[in-house]
Amino acid sequence: APPALALLPAAALRRRKSAPDSPAPRPSNVVKVQRLNAPSSEKDIYDGFYNGQPCVVAVAKEGNRSIRREAETLRRLQSCPHINQLIAFEEGNGEQCMILQRVEPLGHDLVEVTLQQQHSGRPMPLGQMRHYLLQLARACEEMRSHGVVHRDLQAANVLIDRDHSVKVIDFGVATVACDSAPDGQVWHAVHVTNEYSAPEVNVTPGSPSIDVWGLGIVLYSLCFAINPCRAQILLSAESPSGVCGRLHDMEGTHPSAAEAIEGLLRERPEDRWGLDDVLRWAAQAEVPASIGGGA
Results as ranks from 00 to 15, higher is better:
Ala198Asp: 06
Cys229Gly: 05
Asp161Cys: 08
Asn194Pro: 04
Leu234Ile: 11
Arg268Val: 12
Ile226Val: 15
Pro240Asn: 08
Val176Arg: 11
Thr175Ile: 03
Leu222Pro: 01
Glu200Arg: 01
Leu219Thr: 13
Trp213Tyr: 04
Val243Asp: 15
Gly216Met: 08
Tyr220Ser: 12
Glu270Val: 10
Glu262Ala: 14
His248Lys: 13
Gly245Cys: 13
Phe171Arg: 07
Asp152Asn: 11
His150Ala: 09
Val149Asp: 06
Gly263Met: 14
Ser236Gln: 06
Ala156Ile: 02
Cys140Trp: 01
Val186Cys: 07
Pro240Val: 08
His150Glu: 02
Ala257Lys: 00
Gly206Met: 00
Ile261Thr: 04
Arg266Asp: 02
Glu267Pro: 00
Leu219Ala: 13
Gly242Ala: 12
Asp211Phe: 07
Ser239Met: 11
Leu219His: 06
Val166Trp: 00
His150Pro: 08
Asp161Pro: 05
Thr175Lys: 03
Ser239Ala: 14
Val203Gly: 01
Arg266Pro: 01
Arg266Met: 15
Gln154Leu: 01
Ser236Cys: 08
Val190Asp: 04
Glu195Lys: 09
Val190Ala: 11
Asn227Trp: 00
Ala198Pro: 05
Gly147Tyr: 09
Ala174Trp: 05
Gln154Val: 05
Asp211Gln: 09
Ser236Val: 04
Ile169Val: 15
Arg162Leu: 04
Asp271Glu: 15
Val212Asn: 07
Arg144Val: 02
Ala225Phe: 02
Gly214Thr: 02
Leu247Trp: 14
Leu265Lys: 04
Cys244His: 05
Ala189Thr: 11
Leu159Ser: 08
Gln232Trp: 03
Gly172Trp: 09
Ser207Trp: 00
Thr253Arg: 05
Ser236Leu: 13
His150Cys: 10
Asp170Gly: 07
Gly214Arg: 03
Glu142Val: 11
Asp152His: 00
Pro255Cys: 06
Val186Ile: 11
Val166His: 01
Val186Phe: 10
Val192Gly: 04
Gly252Val: 04
Val158Lys: 02
Asp249Ile: 01
Ser236Trp: 08
His164Glu: 06
Ile226Ala: 15
Val190Met: 06
Glu270Gln: 15
Leu247Glu: 09
Ala225Arg: 12
Ile210Tyr: 04
Gly242Phe: 13
Val203Ile: 14
Asp271Asn: 15
Arg151Ile: 03
Ala225Ile: 06
Arg272Ala: 03
Arg162Glu: 10
Ala260Lys: 05
Val166Glu: 01
Asn194Trp: 01
Ala189Ile: 10
Gly172Ser: 12
Arg272Asp: 07
